[in-house]
Write a protein that binds this DNA or RNA. Structure first.
Length: 239
DNA sequence: ACTATATTTGCTAGCTCTCA
DNA sequence: TGAGAGCTAGCAAATATAGT
């Protein structure tokens, strides 16, 4: 264990006895903010009950001796009825306080996982209130968004149904018109112009009843072949 | 000196057990 | 079944202690 004598005096009104490497030191503990042992005020055995220690040793070790000292130097007050006797009321009360503190630490860790848990209880509660309010706001916004999306889904479904019905109506109309076309009587035999045969334009007449079982071929012909603008020149007798 | 935290202690409510 | 005793958790106030 490395010890370092500090120059300043350390004043305290109560001391605790320690034994380090066979040397008897009398003094008190000095703890840092996080309750870890920081240093020990010490004096001689003759100064055990004096108010002024002769010096302070700084502890710079992770040895079990230090742990023992830390145990010895905890904030526990050496009163009667303390938690040294398990099952006593004081012990139960201490357990209850520890449990409470643990819950506060858990809450602090939950609120700010990336930071060291706070020990300031009002600050932890402030954080908790802030986070709860923030989460409430977010939940409210998400509920509103969800409601809007549900309404949009409803509208789109209605629109889809309308389109489906429209499609059925159009399909029925189409079938009806096809039936009507099929039922129109033939206007009489009109032999196609020979040029039509020659230029493969015969299909133009297919839908007029000559070949009722044939598909409407003109739609299969390329536009250049459906052009009849030059027919008059090609076939003089048709004029 | 002041503040935060730990400890002690008195009080109360709730629960269980015993007894008439 | 109701009354009383005993036990305990929880709360709050008082007090002690440590840190700044």
């Amino acid at each position: 264990m490395e010890v370092k004598i500090l120059t300043h005096l350390y004043r305290q009104n109560r001391g605790t006895s320690f034994r380090i490497s066979g040397h008897h030191l009398v003094g008190i503990c000095r703890q840092s903010k996080n309750n870890k042992l920081d240093s020990i005020g010490f004096g001689s055995s003759q100064l055990e009950n004096e108010q002024v220690c002769c010096g302070v040793v700084e502890i710079n070790s992770s040895s079990s001796v230090k742990e023992e000292l830390e145990e010895e130097c905890s904030r526990k007050r050496g009163r009667s009825g303390s938690c040294s006797k398990p099952g006593t009321r004081a012990c139960r009360e201490k357990k209850r306080r520890e449990m409470l503190n643990d819950k506060f630490m858990d809450l602090s860790s939950f609120l700010e996982p990336t930071r060291t848990p706070k020990t300031d209880k009002p600050a932890i509660l402030d954080d908790a209130i802030r986070v709860v309010n923030q989460l409430r706001g977010e939940a409210h916004e998400l509920k509103e968004t969800n409601q809007k999306l549900l309404e949009e889904i409803k509208t789109l479904k209605a629109e889809k149904n309308e389109l489906r019905e429209e499609k059925l109506v159009l399909k029925a109309d189409k079938e009806k018109m096809e039936q009507q076309l099929k039922s129109i009587p033939s206007p009489g035999f009109m032999p196609p112009h020979p040029a039509a045969f020659h230029q493969n334009k015969m299909a133009v007449y297919a839908s007029y009843g000559y070949y009722p079982n044939m598909p409407m071929m003109p739609y299969l012909l390329p536009p250049s072949q459906r052009d009849t603008s030059q027919d008059q020149q090609n076939c003089s007798f048709a004029a």
